[in-house]
Amino acid sequence: MPEHIPTVHDAETPTAIRVVDLVRDYPRPRTSLLQPAPVVHALRGVSLEVKQGERFGIVGESGCGKSTLLRLIAALDRATSGHVIVEDTDITRLPERRLRSLRENLQLVFQDPMSSLDPRMRVRDIIAEPLVVQGHPASGERVRELLEAVGLSADAGDRYPHQFSGGQRQRISIARALAPRPRILIADEPVSALDVSVRAQVLNLISDLVDELNLTLVFVSHDLSVVKHVCDRVAVMNAGQIVETGYTGDVYAAPQHPYTQRLVSAIPTLQRALSGATTADLLAKGEPA
C-alpha cells in the first residue's frame, strides 16, 4: 500500500538531537551486606541522530529503556557515560542553571492524562507554568491562544483537570508543552491511555502542530502501528539497545533484526485478521515458550 512520502533529510539538514554511546546504570537496593549492590543496565550504549524537523519514533516494550533514554534527552536524569547533544550543546553534564535554553526549546507530553496535570491547579496556571518559570509574562492572551490551538474553549482555563476527559487532558498537556514555543517536542506514549475514538483526534492534533510550528518530534510508543502512522524514521529498542533504525515503512514491511521481526509479527491488525490470520499467526516467528 502507498506510504506517505517521508520528509527527505539530506546531510545539510542540521541535527536536532544527537545521542552518542549513551549508558545508564541504576544501582538496585542492596540485597546482601557482603555483596555489592546489583546494577540494572537500563541503557547499554545507545546512539542515534534526529534531524531538525524530523518525526522520529522510538518503539519498544516495557523495560526496554525507552523511558530512560527520553529522560536523558530531556536532562531529567544523569547518564552514566556517553553524550546527549541537543542543538549543538552537549547537555549531558550541564548543571541545571545552564539548561535554560534546553528547558525552553525542548518540551514533553506524557502518557498518563490523569497524572500529568497537577489536580490542584487551574488549567490556565498549568499552561502558564513553563512561561512563568522562564520569566515570560504569562499573559491571559497567550493562554487563550494556546487553548484555541489545541481545540479547547477559552473558558477551559478557569476549570480544574478533573473536569476534563482523558483526551481533553492530553490537549491541555500539549498546550502546556507548546507554551514556551519549543523547537523540539518529545511525546511519551501520548495516546496509549486514550479511547480509540479520541486517539485519532490527538494524533491529528500533534501532527498538525508539528507541521504548523516546524517542530522536531520524538514520539515514543510501544505501538509500532501508531509510530508508523506518525513518524518518518523509527528506532526499535530492546533490552537497553537500539536493534534497528530505519524509515518506518521499511522497518514495518521488512524488519531486519529478529526482535523487530517478532515484534511486527505479534501486532494484531484488522487487515490481517479479516484476511484470516489467527492468534497462532501472531506467534509465527518463533516465539520462545
Binding site: 525552553e104 525542548l106 497524572s115 513553563p130 522562564q134
Partner: peptide
Amino acid sequence: TEYVLAARAAGRQPFPIALR
C-alpha cells in the same frame, strides 16, 4: 507524578516545585 516531571522539564527549581 508526571506533572512534577513536566515542571522540571520546564525548568522549575526544587523550591517552587515543593511549594506549588
